Simulated assay, not measured.
Amino acid sequence: MNADNKIIELNWRATLSTLWIFVFLNIIFRDIHGFFRTGFLEEIMTGTVDGVLITEELLLIFGILVEIPIAMVLLSRVLKYKVNFWANSIASVLMIVVIIDNGVADLDDIFFVTIQIIGLLAIIWYAWKWPKPAS
């Protein structure tokens, strides 16, 4: 692989990794922003939020789901081209499904969900447009 191809590949990896950081930060700030909703902290203290009992198993599932973008920051940098393509595509689609399934409660949710989905669609686009490295 010549130096120009190596630089192009590093740029694509950096862009994908940066987009995952962008999406992850928006997920975090959407969650933090939710704490300012009237009555939300009281709900958390009861252990039931929006009628859903918060259990250890549910927290584990949430932890696994939030680990996806965290892991993709690193994996976008280290995985081989073909695996990287599939990992970014599958993880992005999965996160879009999770974000949409989570629903929107108010205008700020719509804002954050829109930004997150745009970021994830950009990841999919970059993964598909990434030039195949020369053999």
Rank of each mutant, 00 (worst) to 15 (best):
A14Q: 11
A14I: 13
S17M: 04
T18C: 11
F22S: 02
V23M: 05
F24H: 03
F24V: 00
L25E: 02
N26H: 06
I27T: 08
I28G: 04
F29M: 09
I32Y: 03
I32N: 07
F35G: 13
F35T: 08
T38V: 14
F40S: 11
L41D: 12
E42D: 15
E42P: 06
E42K: 15
E43G: 09
E43H: 09
I44N: 11
M45F: 14
T46M: 02
G47P: 02
T48K: 14
V49D: 08
D50R: 13
D50Q: 14
G51S: 06
G51M: 07
I54G: 07
E56P: 09
E56W: 12
E57P: 10
E57W: 15
L60Q: 13
I61Y: 06
F62S: 15
F62C: 15
G63A: 06
G63D: 06
G63V: 02
I64F: 07
V66E: 14
I68Y: 03
P69M: 11
A71N: 06
M72V: 00
M72H: 00
V73W: 08
V73L: 11
R77T: 07
V78Q: 08
K80M: 11
K80A: 13
Y81N: 10
K82V: 13
K82P: 00
A87W: 00
A87E: 04
I90Q: 01
I90E: 06
I90L: 05
V93L: 01
M95G: 01
M95C: 09
V97T: 10
V98M: 00
I99P: 00
I99L: 12
I100T: 02
N102R: 12
V104F: 04
D106V: 01
D108C: 10
I110N: 02
T114F: 08
T114I: 04
T114G: 09
I115N: 11
